[in-house]
């Protein structure tokens, strides 16, 4: 899921002031931002109280099924068309994909209410960790299912670096070195990587903006990279 965190409230207030917004509509997301406790009903009501505390009016709010879904968000916007048209601006408590979907669905100025931070594993309720960068050139087959591109702070394919000490990471000193974990798991599974050096990554597999279209007849394009 996409992990978000609250955006600096001063920036949101400044955004509203920039467009002279006295009346605000709020939109959340029923998927990731609800699980991340950043853009569900509870957080929308907290944001509503905060905006009202600045003397502004909240004309209404909605938490649709999933904010980044174009059709669903347009439907949600239509359901609340009166409240949105009464508002001077819309603040969206969702990831950047959700904010852009809302911005495409309404004619009012739309502002982000959250910061989008990473694609996260839900380690347990309320604990999220980044394990995948969506690089489009997966090495997990070589690295025992532990991604060095993401979990090594330097993203080294061939590690550990010289800062590893007592098996721990030099940058995040409370964590075990990703390369130590990889080697241990490979050894446990009898798949020693030997001394093979992993080749430099192909960053053309992840050129912006990514795009996949399953409706295209021939081939697919992914991550903006070249078709195979």
């Amino acid at each position: 899921m996409i992990i978000t965190r609250p955006r600096d409230w001063a920036r949101i207030k400044a955004n509203l002031a920039e467009v002279g917004a006295e009346k605000v509509f709020l939109m959340g997301c029923g998927q990731c931002a609800t699980v991340a406790s950043t853009g569900g009903e509870k957080e929308i009501l907290q944001a509503k109280a905060a905006i009202e505390a600045t003397g502004r009016t909240v004309t209404g709010w909605a938490v649709g099924e999933v904010a980044c879904h174009s059709g669903g968000t347009k439907l949600e916007a239509r359901k609340h068309v009166g409240d949105i048209s009464d508002a001077d601006a819309v603040v969206v408590l969702a990831c950047g994909a959700g904010v852009q979907t809302v911005a495409d669905s309404v004619s009012k100025p739309v502002f982000p209410g959250l910061e989008s931070v990473f694609l996260g594993n839900v380690v347990r309720h309320g604990v999220f960790e980044e394990r995948c960068q969506m690089c489009g050139d997966c090495v997990l087959d070589k690295t025992a299912g532990i991604c060095p591109v993401t979990t090594c702070p330097k993203g080294l394919l061939n590690g550990p670096c010289g800062g590893m000490w007592g098996g721990m990471c030099e940058v995040l000193t409370d964590r075990e070195c990703a390369h130590v974990r990889i080697q241990r798991r490979l050894t446990e599974q009898g798949r020693g990587r030997g001394r093979a050096t992993l080749e430099p990554k192909d960053f053309s597999k992840k050129l912006k903006p990514g795009s996949v279209n399953l409706r295209e007849k021939k081939g697919t394009s992914a991550g903006g990279g070249r078709d195979e």
Binding site: K154, L156, G159, T197, F203
Partner: peptide, 12 residues
């Protein structure tokens, strides 16, 4: 931090 290559790759 760029780390486009690591030291072993750059040596190669």
């Amino acid at each position: 931090g760029v780390f486009d290559l690591d030291s072993t790759q750059l040596m190669e």
